[in-house]
Design a protein around this nucleic acid. Structure first.
Lengths: 250, 250
DNA sequence: ACCTGAACACCGTTCAAGT
DNA sequence: ACCTGAACACCGTTCAAGT
């Protein structure tokens, strides 16, 4: 199944004549396409080098490191998620951000695992996203320390849910594993877990930890919408607390 | 720096005499210790085999797969987080769960990345945790579809935040990377990002995406506490909505 | 049942050398 | 500046063979 060194186009060393030189951009695109098609587990520097008809060292000349390439890929996926400013109230703006982010991740679900890890520790800052969230929360009345706390909550709520919704299943024998987990879920002892047992029909394969499919095959649409609402309701309560504290101390 | 095949104790094949046979348990402990000491990037089947003074194949005889071992490790870390039932109200119980979970992760920050990925798609179900959350949410008045939604929100909020707070920095030249990111953060263009610029002193190295240290060196204590409060406030608002809808339709 | 010893098919990264 | 060709030091997993 695996290809080896580039046989199709045995070119010679040096910069190609046609101006068809490789670029960070093109490499990132190829990597994203490959990850979309075969998953993050199948990703490797050598694989995408082969894909591009080039030696592994060539990729390294453009990209420096595997980690940097994956960060680039993650940034690409998140590039268009920030909603435009100004037209929406802060609650609607944040809700829109959540939804656009999920839409983007759903188009590239295999990249989801990178978001928490790579976007958070990222060289290519999505500054518009940060600015947008801060602007929305400022409009909500947050400032200083509460602003920081509300911001961290928003980012964690958004990326956290998506990371988990699309977290990959065991790579190997998914079939057997799913069957075993389904079995295990349905043989939970009712006496020790009465609430779980009672609601199992509602929860099975739709609740975190009780799933054997991920968001690619069983999307958690209503849970995500509810997650948005809960987050925004919580933020509004926080804003009220802040306003209260300010007025009572004046 | 790296060790090779087990030289210290060149034993012969077969089950060891002293009853000191290897076990899944002992392997998981060794793996956890190694990950705590050197990070998840330094983890490998061969490494922990060497650590235990055996051949790689021996580890595979007990553990089947690398992925399974890491799932075991993640489960070990999460083993003791579920608070006892009955003594607390549902809000306090959930808050306690969040705090105990963070305490556990702080003792093994390098496993954080596994939580979202491994706990969610896990063979060894932490059924007490699931049962506990469901019991708390039932006490809050949730049932049926809303129960599912509230549950998913709780799990995502808890694990999502922790995954991000302790998400690892670039493995290679952390020093240079941190310096570059700090530089980049402080040269953000004020005209394009007025809100960000204004609050940068508050946010730098303490807000997601604007950090160059992770939770191990710069813990986000107050943000996490606020995250708990926002989540619970949001859940209470959700419970009120549900109650309202039920009474208005009766 | 539990482990050795060796092999297979991969990795990321580096580096001299070419053009 | 951009790429080849080859090497280095690793991987996870499998498998016959030992005890």
């Amino acid at each position: 199944m695996k290809k080896k060194a580039p046989e199709p186009r045995p070119r010679s060393a040096g910069r190609p004549a046609g101006g068809a030189a490789l670029s960070k951009q093109r490499i990132a695109e190829a990597a994203l396409a490959h990850i979309d098609a075969f998953g993050l587990g199948a990703f490797s520097m050598r694989e995408i080098a082969a894909q591009l008809g080039v030696y592994p060292a060539t990729v390294h000349w453009h990209v420096s490191t595997r980690e940097a390439l994956l960060a680039e890929v993650a940034a690409t996926v998140m590039a268009q998620v920030t909603p435009p400013k100004g037209t929406l109230g802060w609650q609607a703006w944040i809700a829109e951000l959540f939804r656009r982010c999920r839409t983007a991740v759903r188009q590239h679900p295999n990249v989801a695992q990178l978001l928490g890890a790579q976007l958070v520790s990222n060289g290519s800052l999505p500054t518009e996203l940060v600015e947008g969230v801060l602007a929305a929360l400022t409009e909500a009345g947050f400032d200083g320390e509460p602003l920081l706390e509300a911001y961290n909550c928003v980012i964690a709520a958004m990326l956290g849910f998506l990371t988990m919704e699309f977290s990959p299943l065991p790579a190997d024998n998914t079939q057997a594993w799913a069957e075993e987990l389904r079995e295990r879920v349905h043989t939970i002892r009712p006496l020790d877990h009465p609430v779980l047992t009672r609601h199992l029909p509602q929860l099975a394969n739709r609740a975190f930890i009780l799933r054997w499919d991920n968001g690619t095959t069983v999307p958690l649409d209503s849970s995500f919408e509810r997650h948005i609402q809960i987050t925004i309701d919580g933020l509004e309560a926080f804003a009220r607390r802040v306003a209260q504290a300010a007025s009572s101390s004046s």
